[in-house]
């Protein structure tokens, strides 16, 4: 015998089947989303706790490193002082020009032949003005040849070349 549904409610009080289905679906979706939210929130909380615990560990390590650095404060001060002095002193060292010209003059004097002597040297930042005297022309010629070939100076200008019978030759050179 076939089963029949008996509904004693009046027709206007009975909701349609599609609305009931929609309501049921909405309820299930809401419950599903709520369950997903709980899972996601739990995951978020777990991540928060893990990250927070890592952060605390890192901060403890940072504090310990800071304490170690404070213990080496004296070293840091000395390093800072050394760097400060080096930076300022290197500026002075790099600006030394007359020292370079004095070294060049020393190299020139090292190969000066016996018949020659330095009579005057005026050294400034830009150039060297050198005066030499020679008793004979052969020593003067060999000296000038060596001076040119030595490459000590990039540029040389002969400013004066004179001969005085009593003292010999006088040569004035401006060198850069």
């Amino acid at each position: 015998m076939a089963k029949t549904n008996i509904n004693l409610l009046p027709q206007d009080l009975v909701g349609s089947a599609s609305i009931s289905k929609a309501a049921e679906l909405l309820k299930r979706v809401a419950i599903g989303l709520a369950a997903l939210f709980v899972i996601l929130a739990g995951l978020g909380l777990a991540l928060f706790l893990i990250f927070n615990s890592d952060l605390k560990r890192q901060q403890a390590s940072v504090d310990s490193l800071r304490a170690n650095i404070r213990n080496l404060e004296g070293v840091e001060q000395r390093l800072f002082l050394v760097k400060d002095r080096i930076q300022k002193a290197s500026g002075v060292i790099k600006s030394r020009k007359i020292e370079e010209k004095t070294a060049a003059l020393a190299r020139v004097l090292a190969f000066m032949p016996s018949g020659m002597s330095l009579t005057e040297a005026e050294l400034d930042v830009a150039k060297s003005k050198l005066a030499f005297s020679a008793t004979d022309s052969s020593s003067l010629a060999s000296f000038l040849a060596q001076l040119v070939s030595s490459g000590i100076y990039k540029e040389m200008t002969l400013k004066n070349f004179s001969f005085i019978p009593t003292s010999g030759f006088l040569v004035i050179i401006e060198a850069i």
Binding site: V92, S95, R96, I98, E99, K101, T102, L118, A121, L123
Partner: peptide, 10 residues
Amino acid sequence: NKLEKLKVTA
């Protein structure tokens, strides 16, 4: 130090 000016007469 740094040499500022130098003149040698000999």
